[in-house]
């Protein structure tokens, strides 16, 4: 369903319309991933039902789901809050990402279709173009698209689902070093190495290249020095790397 929230809406009744629940779920999840709310922000049912125009029971169900998935925490007497990761939790999640995503890259080297490889190449070209023009936001978007495309090209549903449940975008945002150069030196070359391994159908090389890339990205985070200042850092309107 397409609904343009203007004065004069368009509703595409012909297509499948997601339920209120899934709209509110997707909307809140997107909002949490956008970093608009600092880690540890209290979320009240009353505010959220107003914001999403759903009933309290629908919003409660959405919050249960997001709690199970780890986007928010829910504690007696503290209410529902946006997730704030300890350094240990963050390191754990990023380690899992290294393992999962390198496996996905390996499978992509075996199974990517010609069209998928063309798409990956196009994304990388766009990233190169953004980097040379100094378009940091465009580079970040390309980066995210590249990783999604590798995941899809793996044709490995179980790994892909596990990867989707990782909360690493939230971790990256919370621990991002906002004063560091962006894109990180070596980032583009690392992506090129991953693509090369996929194009040459070399799974071992793809696994290694992705592992190296994800580890480098992890090392650039402020996992050691952050401690308690992470709330302040992530509250700044910065882009996810």
């Amino acid at each position: 369903m397409v609904e343009i929230s203007g004065y004069d809406d368009v509703v595409d009744v012909g297509s499948t319309s997601p339920t209120r629940h899934s709209q509110a779920y997707e909307g809140l999840r997107t909002l949490l991933l956008s970093g608009s709310m600092a880690p540890g922000t209290r979320l009240t049912e009353a505010d959220l039902t107003r914001m999403f125009n759903v009933s309290r029971s629908t919003m409660r169900a959405v919050l249960v789901r997001l709690t199970q998935e780890g986007y928010v925490t829910s504690e007696v007497n503290r209410g529902v809050r946006t997730r704030s990761f300890s350094v240990e939790e963050a390191a754990d999640i990023l380690e899992a990402r290294e393992t999962l995503e390198s496996a996905l890259a390996g499978k992509a080297a075996e199974r990517a279709t010609a069209e998928e490889i063309r798409e990956l190449r196009r994304t990388l070209e766009a990233m190169e173009d953004c980097k040379s023009r100094g378009d940091q936001a465009g580079y970040s978007q390309g980066n995210r698209r590249f990783h999604q495309q590798v995941k899809e090209a793996s044709h490995q549903q179980t790994l892909a689902r596990a990867y989707d449940t990782l909360l690493y975008p939230l971790v990256m945002r919370q621990y991002r070093n906002v004063s560091a150069q962006h894109p990180r030196a070596g980032s583009l070359e690392e992506h090129q190495a991953i693509l090369l391994a996929i194009v040459t159908r070399n799974p071992e090389a793809a696994v290694a290249a992705m592992r190296h890339h994800v580890a480098s990205a992890r090392q650039a985070l402020m996992l050691r020095s952050a401690r308690d200042e992470h709330t302040e850092l992530s509250a700044r309107p910065e882009f996810l790397s």
Partner: peptide, 19 residues
């Protein structure tokens, strides 16, 4: 950043913070 607003299709997938 985009101005505070309820999540909606106009901004879906835009990847911008809200503030």
């Amino acid at each position: 950043p985009m101005c505070p607003q309820a999540p909606n299709p106009e901004i879906a997938g835009l990847d911008l913070p809200m503030s």
